[in-house]
């Protein structure tokens, strides 16, 4: 048990820290750079009509590239830590739930494709689409249709890395333009859709993998 004195000191320090933070924020001068205006001014060259997608995949594309790399590394870490050669057979779920999952999964894939396509002009995009795909896989796993992950096979590995690799290849091919991920405006829309399609598949698989790789060690390790 942590001594009461230390606990009180930490809470007191934290409270004054929060107070200082809030006062500093209230005191903040107006921002010197107006970013929304800068985004608005460059929307025509971005290849998409939705500002958030333009920032994610065009103006700050390298952020997203590195982020997919981080996700891949996290999944590698999860697979390495949860070492178990053979995944247990999926527990047979209840028939009603299985039936529901079988009905819902194709609809969720449809929603993912819609979100991916809609991302160009309205809220949506690769992240949300990937999340829905991952959720579909988790649903199938929880109802006992999809088994947990052992060591991923070659095709699964290709799918996991596809988003990152497509992104890297596009970035490498565009290096000749003189800047990282500076798309030519005429092709920007198509390139972004290509990258987003790869990202959706990979993100879906990675997010599902984080759950499926972890859930295989439930129960005891006798």
């Amino acid at each position: 048990m942590i001594p009461l004195l230390k606990r009180a000191a930490v809470i007191l320090a934290a409270a004054s820290f929060a107070g200082a933070l809030v006062f500093a924020m209230l005191d903040l001068p107006a921002p010197g750079v107006h970013l929304p205006a800068a985004v608005e001014a460059n929307m025509a060259a971005s290849g998409v009509a939705h500002p958030v997608t333009a920032v994610l995949l065009n103006f700050r594309g390298y952020d997203t590239l590195l982020e997919v790399g981080v996700l891949l590394l996290a999944l590698l870490g999860v697979l390495a830590v949860g070492a178990r050669a053979t995944p247990p057979a999926p527990a047979p779920g209840e028939p009603v739930k299985r039936m529901f999952a079988r009905l819902a999964a194709p609809l969720m894939v449809l929603v993912a494709v819609y979100l991916l396509w809609a991302g160009a002009i309205q809220p949506g995009g690769a992240f949300q689409a990937g999340a829905v795909l991952g959720a579909a896989a988790v649903l199938l796993h929880l109802t006992g249709i999809l088994p947990g992950w052992g060591a991923p096979g070659l095709r699964l590995r290709a799918g996991l890395a596809a988003g990152f690799l497509i992104f890297l290849v596009v970035a490498g091919a565009l290096l000749a333009q003189g800047a990282v991920l500076a798309y030519p405006p005429a092709q920007a829309g198509r390139l972004i859709l290509l990258i987003e399609a790869g990202l959706t598949v990979s993100l879906g698989l990675i997010l599902a993998g984080l759950f499926l790789a972890l859930s295989r060690d439930s129960g005891d390790e006798a």
Partner: peptide
């Protein structure tokens, strides 16, 4: 955009991961 991602990932997937971990530790 963030609301969509938060609902699916922040609440949904993280919640599922946490509940699964709680279940495994308890088991």
């Amino acid at each position: 955009d963030i609301a969509l991602a938060e609902a699916a990932i922040g609440a949904g997937l993280t919640g599922a991961l946490l509940l699964d971990a709680v279940g495994a530790l308890r088991a």
